[in-house]
Amino acid sequence: MNVSTLNQTEVLGQPAVHIVAPDGAQATVLLHGAHVVSWVPAGAHEQLYLSPTAVAGPGRAVRGGVPVIFPQFEQMGPDTSLPRHGFARTRAWEIDSHHRGREHSQVTLALHDDADTRALWPHGFRLELTVSVGARRLDLELFAENTGQTPWPFAAALHTYLAVSNLANVRLQGLEGCRYRDRLLGGSAVEDHPEKRFHGEMDRIYSQVPDLLLRDGPRRLSLRSDNLPDAVVWNPGPQKCAAMNDMPAGDWEHMLCVEAARIESPLTLQPGETWAGLHTLVLAED
């Protein structure tokens, strides 16, 4: 691939790539963590939240955008010896390929094991994140391959921070009937609200989630996933947000994480096996 055809730039002091579809849809991806930090659909505004005080660098996670979580979520395993949310989001990825078609533009970034990752997690692997934009659609495909000699279990998530006008305006549809684990209050239950509303801190892992619809005033954003059966719904609320050094105190009102994930049922890849999970966001026409 001739990377000179890519628009290479810098965001948060880190190298990044900026892809633009023929219709004007665009996305920006850091090589640090393969972290999507911007998605602007054709004829629309920014859809992702990126903290204005976010930082990036070796070993540091970016507050906002779409962090790649692998091979564990939070410190829930399957390997609790690893750093929180694993290591993929804080590593330098490489540009693998780029394609600009008649209706979309896409870039694939790759990460593979090296001496540093094997010191944390003694396994051979290859990860790819493919980011594709066109019209009012963003596709994120996470691919994993076991390139080593031993099997390994993993969890994964695409930790999507959505920008919202104000949290009080947001309605999330599609969770009714899904069982969830409440990480604030403990225990589990089944969601009984056809339209979820938000008033502050929330941290839930929903299982076997269908397509979702986020409503924010006139805005309609559909969220669909394949092979990522769980959804994490998270907001830090005012107290935790005020304690963060990489997020303004009032910005909890302007973001909501709705993350496509595989957490509750980790998979094990045998040597040579592969897995892929897809997360698709579509902004409805005005």
Rank of each mutant, 00 (worst) to 15 (best):
G148T: 02
D251I: 04
L172F: 10
V131L: 05
V36M: 06
W93P: 00
Q26T: 05
L269A: 07
G217L: 13
S165Q: 14
E273C: 07
D114E: 10
Y161I: 04
R197A: 14
M202C: 14
L6W: 13
A61S: 15
G200I: 09
H99G: 00
M1Y: 12
A110Q: 08
T130I: 01
G77Y: 03
L129T: 05
L30V: 06
W39S: 13
L283H: 10
P229I: 12
L138W: 03
R100E: 14
L142T: 03
Q72C: 04
G59K: 11
V107A: 05
R219N: 03
L214E: 13
W121V: 14
F154K: 06
L48M: 02
A54L: 03
P15R: 11
R219E: 12
W234V: 14
G250N: 00
V66M: 08
G64M: 04
L129H: 07
D246C: 09
D116K: 12
T268D: 06
R60H: 04
A163P: 10
G65L: 00
N245T: 14
P22N: 12
G177M: 09
R219T: 15
P41M: 11
P236H: 08
D230Y: 06
L185K: 10
G24Y: 13
N166V: 12
L228R: 08
K196W: 06
T28K: 06
R183Q: 08
H112V: 00
R89Y: 09
Q75I: 07
A21W: 11
P122S: 10
G277A: 03
A88E: 01
L50D: 09
